[in-house]
Amino acid sequence: MLEWHTRGLAVRDRFPSWRDTMSQALVATWLATQQPASFYASARVFDLGGLQLSAMSHNTLQADRPAKLIRQSDPEVFQLHLVLTGSGGITQAGRSAVFQSGQFLLIDSSRPYRGWRGADDVPVESLIIQFPRAALGLRAKVAEQLVAAPFPVEGGITGVLAGHLTQLSENAESLTRQNAETLTSVTLDLIAAACAHQLEATGMLSPESRRRALLSLIHQFIRQRLGDPDLTAETIATAHQISVRQLYKLFEEQGMTVAGWIRRCRLEQCRRDLADPCQRSRLIQTIAARWGFTDAATFSRNFRATYGMSPRDHRNLSAADRALSAS
């Protein structure tokens, strides 16, 4: 992981250092700022094998990648930006667009572009996924229709992708190599599905990409409804316009059942809440009911089978561990 920030640098070195570091870590770009004396920035860059994830924050900035620079160095990658705060503008591939928080922006390293980000007093925060053009799973000419054409984070696949990237950035530092490879594959499938959905070209996705994207949507759907005791395979299948048999097959390929996955997610939420000191006064059954367990005996039995102790013992052990850490 590369972690970089302007703290501790002399004022005169902040922008030049950022310019040189980011051009090496990402795509070579001519960067400029009108206010070098007040420039500030930070970045965390993770190499996950098949892609690179960056979490960035900075104030006003101009970027220029002319044809001359592309001829000198072109890694032939796409960059997908998830804009978290702030705004900016870009011109590429004959398009000019303004983008803002809550949007995705796709940039092509093989085409000249010019853009600006942020303002003097309003930092821009974004997550950037950089990956080989050939890894997207969509024909390049299809994906290029989204270059410099911002699209919003909404429900469905774009919302799932945004949530996935946020969680990935929060946990990237602790990933094992095997987990990173798996998440790289899932991330690329979600990006391809989001792009295809935006272009109404989902038929161009590979069957594997469609399957994994659909499974991610289903997982998100379930997590949002864990507190509903009537959550069933039938309601999940209907919501995603597939048969119950297809739904069962999707989960069987993951080595689990639909009911088993729902139960596991509910137990994870209960386990978290029982360890939360802010919820110490809440009844155990109240917590269980919040996450869809309507029968106390069934909840206790499932909890013990999964974690090797009763819900009460887990709560008391968590409290004891906190007390020991505080002493």
Rank of each mutant, 00 (worst) to 15 (best):
P36K: 02
S17V: 12
W18S: 07
A25I: 06
D20Q: 11
A25C: 02
L31D: 00
A41K: 07
A41V: 03
A32K: 02
P36E: 06
V11I: 08
S38Y: 11
A37V: 09
Y40L: 15
A25D: 00
Y40A: 14
S42Q: 13
S42H: 15
R12L: 13
S17F: 13
V27W: 00
Q34L: 02
Q24R: 09
M22E: 06
S42C: 15
Q24A: 08
Q34Y: 05
A25R: 02
Q34N: 01
T21Q: 13
A32E: 03
Q24C: 11
P16M: 11
V27F: 00
A25S: 03
M22H: 08
D20V: 12
F39D: 08
A32N: 03
F15E: 08
F15Q: 09
R12S: 14
T33L: 04
L26I: 11
D20G: 10
Y40E: 13
L26G: 06
R14I: 03
R12D: 15
A37P: 09
L26K: 06
W18I: 05
Q35G: 10
Q35V: 05
P36V: 03
Y40G: 14
F39T: 03
P16G: 10
A28W: 03
P36G: 05
P16K: 06
P16N: 09
Q34D: 07
W18G: 08
P16A: 13
L31H: 04
Q34A: 05
T33C: 05
T21Y: 14
P36L: 02
Y40I: 14
Q35I: 06
L31Q: 02
W30L: 09
R19P: 00
P36H: 05
L31C: 04
S38D: 09
S17P: 12
L26R: 07
A41Q: 04
M22V: 05
T29P: 02
F15Y: 14
R12E: 15
Q34C: 05
R12A: 15
